[in-house]
Design a protein around this nucleic acid. Sequence first.
DNA 1: ATTCTTGCAAATCATTTGCACTTTA
DNA 2: TAAAGTGCAAATGATTTGCAAGAAT
Lengths: 144, 144
Amino acid sequence: MKNEITEKAKNILKKHGIQPSVQRIKILEYLLINRTHPSADEIYRSLCAELPTLSKTTVYNTIETLVEKGIVKPLNIDSRELRVDAIIEPHAHFRCMECGKIYDVEIEMPDYINKKVGDGHLVKAQDLYLEGICNSCLKKNEKK
Amino acid sequence: MKNEITEKAKNILKKHGIQPSVQRIKILEYLLINRTHPSADEIYRSLCAELPTLSKTTVYNTIETLVEKGIVKPLNIDSRELRVDAIIEPHAHFRCMECGKIYDVEIEMPDYINKKVGDGHLVKAQDLYLEGICNSCLKKNEKK
DNA sequence: ATTCTTGCAAATCATTTGCACTTTA
DNA sequence: TAAAGTGCAAATGATTTGCAAGAAT
């Protein structure tokens, strides 16, 4: 049911003390359903049909709120634009150099959170970014 | 000697088949000396005194050339602007959430290069980005 | 002489800001 | 009704592009 996710989004917002406006619910819902690390623009364009009056400002405002509350994580993996990621499990991100798609990848890696690294710098967050050719592009290239 | 680094920069350019113009030498020289992951603007401002006619376009052009040839690596660790890193040793990057400074950190981590991860995606480059409070900010905070 | 390089000025594009209008508690 | 949320329009700021002048082979 779509209603379930709507309820889930609404509950997450309430739990974090964020007023569950229609726009915020739809945006969070979109992030929960589409685990594709969308950009602000992608979110905006995808929701325009449902919410014709939606503005990009609201998308940015909402992302900011969600990031502040730790519901969503901003990714810098794309230098052109912000990507956001609904936080579920810690994972690495793989970016395909050919098609630009970004995949979640679950691999083990050392956990540095709350440890000190280098010259005594305390780690609060870590991110492993991988780049290369994704499975689907590899297959495409074989065919040529 | 400063001349040594100038020569080094010139040689790197020649080795990669890049014409060693004054601008390119100075920019690469700056990157070799200042291992601080400068932004295009920082490079530009720092070299303006020496090269009064330098334009930002040339800085961007040169960075692009250096990146293409694999002499320099673009970092996405700062979402606002591009940072570049003269490639010497593989290392992680630590970004201080307070002062925004970016440090090189040498820590061991699994090497995924040329391995397949997740759903068969071939890794060609990897980057570990750490965030937290740097040593110097930690000390500052203690004093308060 | 032809090709590469530089750099000004204008264009682009993601993101931010100012502000007036609307909604909600 | 006061406070929070929305969204238009303009501003900002990093990067890119078009192009003409200059330098190198």
